[in-house]
Design a protein around this nucleic acid. Structure first.
Length: 411
DNA sequence: CCTCCACAGGAAGCGCAGGAGT
DNA sequence: ACTCCTGCGCTTCCTGTGGAGG
């Protein structure tokens, strides 16, 4: 009668979740376990703003999921509240350069945060910049501009925007803007113009990865907010922590696992999240990642991957660059396409390795040369399914699939 | 000890698409 | 409407290298 009624009823009254949103990546919790020291240091750097003085510029780096963004946001919200209380005008502006990846958009966001009216288009970056400087000059507010994932902006557009931003203050009689840069890549700072580097990096802060024990604390705290009491079996949190700790202590990964496991339990109408849900959540997350990686692969990348699958099928599970290249050429010929060079295939193989789809190590076979030995490191079925999405590959995927599964199953 | 295989992987540059500036 | 710029996929040319076989 009412096929959706059941779903809605269940969603309204979850036995698993109390508040699922608390597990989403952009939620900033009340407390950040094991980041107390970092938070104190950030606060110490930014605190002079409460006296109306310009804080030092701050540069923060650490791997993904180490709490950089959360820590900064946490401090800023407290800072703004405290400033308000004491009648100081402090305004934080947060820009994520991964999504606002042109100088124009970054400047537009900053301008908007400062209350400058910025049309979506039509102005030169120089003009917006001028407006920002003017605004900063005749406002009594102190601005703290956070540039999250700055490496994206610099990688794609060079560092002259950063240079300009660090120069805002020198164009003003009194300094009114401080910068907080955040990045995942450690070697990023070295690639900067020395002038930008010294200015942006007045104070530097490193966020180390979490270990399994720390992840456990984080998850426990978050789970208490997100899940119904008793919705988790005891082993769930330690398991999520251990799995994420293996992936360079990525807290975001750990929270994802927990959330997806919860969603699975809920979809099944279960009452508790069990160990098995976590294991399946991990597979699902991994599958999604693989599908996404493959979807964005260029055509010849897919063909090379298909060749790897084909040459590693059956009894032997590894092959070499040369073998893959031969197979790749024959697959390509079947589609009447041009082939790329060995050099490129070698490069593609290195990329696939970095993406975690295959793994290879370089070995020497002495008299018989030196090569990279390759094997698949992602789930075969997931790879094939993702590849079959590309219609340009036509029948080839089906064929390789039969080849791979046939030999394996037939043995 | 030297050679030489079968590649690895750096450097430079090309053609193209798409987006921005003018 | 036009040029300029940038990133990407790719090629060309290159130098480098661990160790089995001579």
């Amino acid at each position: 009668m009412d096929p959706l009624g059941d779903i809605f009823k269940r969603a309204l009254k979850s036995r698993i979740f109390k508040n699922r949103e608390k597990l989403l990546p952009d939620y900033v919790p009340e407390a950040l376990p094991h980041r107390e020291e970092e938070i104190r240091r950030i606060a110490a750097v930014l605190a002079p703003s409460l006296r109306g003085e310009k804080p030092s510029n701050l540069f923060i780096y650490g791997l993904t999921g180490t709490g950089k963004t959360a820590a900064v946001r946490y401090v800023l919200s407290r800072l703004e509240a405290s400033a308000k209380e004491h009648g100081q005008r402090v305004k934080a502006i947060y820009v994520n350069a991964r999504y606002r990846d042109t100088p124009y958009r970054v400047l537009a966001d900053i301008g908007e945060g400062m209350g400058v009216s910025v049309p979506f288009t039509g102005l030169s970056t120089g003009e917006i910049f001028g407006r920002i400087v003017r605004r900063a000059a005749d406002s009594s507010t102190l601005y703290i501009v956070v540039l999250d994932e700055v490496d994206f902006l610099v990688k794609r557009r060079g560092d002259d925007v950063l240079y300009k931003l660090t120069r805002i203050n020198s164009e003003l009689k009194s300094s009114r803007v401080s910068l907080v840069g955040i990045t995942n890549s450690v070697d990023f700072i070295e690639s900067l113009d020395p002038r930008v580097k010294s200015s942006l990096g007045e104070v530097e802060l490193v966020f180390p990865p979490y270990n399994a024990e720390q992840l456990r604390d984080i998850l426990s705290a978050r789970a208490a907010e997100a899940f119904q009491p008793n919705a988790l079996e005891d082993e769930v949190i330690p398991l999520c922590s251990a799995l994420a700790a293996r992936e360079h202590g990525d807290a975001r990964r750990a929270l994802d696992l927990l959330r997806v496991a919860g969603e699975m339990a809920e979809r099944e109408g279960g009452e508790r999240v069990r160990r098995e849900h976590v294991m399946r959540a991990r597979e699902e997350i991994e599958r999604d990642r693989v599908v996404e990686v493959i979807r964005t692969l260029p055509l010849h990348g897919k063909l090379v991957l298909l060749a790897v699958i084909s040459t590693t099928a059956g009894g032997r599970s590894h092959s070499t660059t040369g073998e893959v290249y031969e197979k790749y050429k024959s697959l390509t010929r079947r589609l009447s396409l041009e082939t790329v060079t060995l050099r490129r295939v070698s490069g593609i193989l290195a990329e696939l390795d970095m993406l975690g789809v295959i793994s290879g190590r370089v070995i020497s076979k002495g008299r018989y040369g030196k090569t990279r030995v390759l094997e698949l490191s992602a789930d075969l079925a997931a790879l094939l399914r993702a590849l079959s999405e590309d219609i340009a590959l036509g029948e080839l995927v089906e064929e390789v699939k039969r080849e791979a599964l046939g030999k394996r199953g037939g043995m």
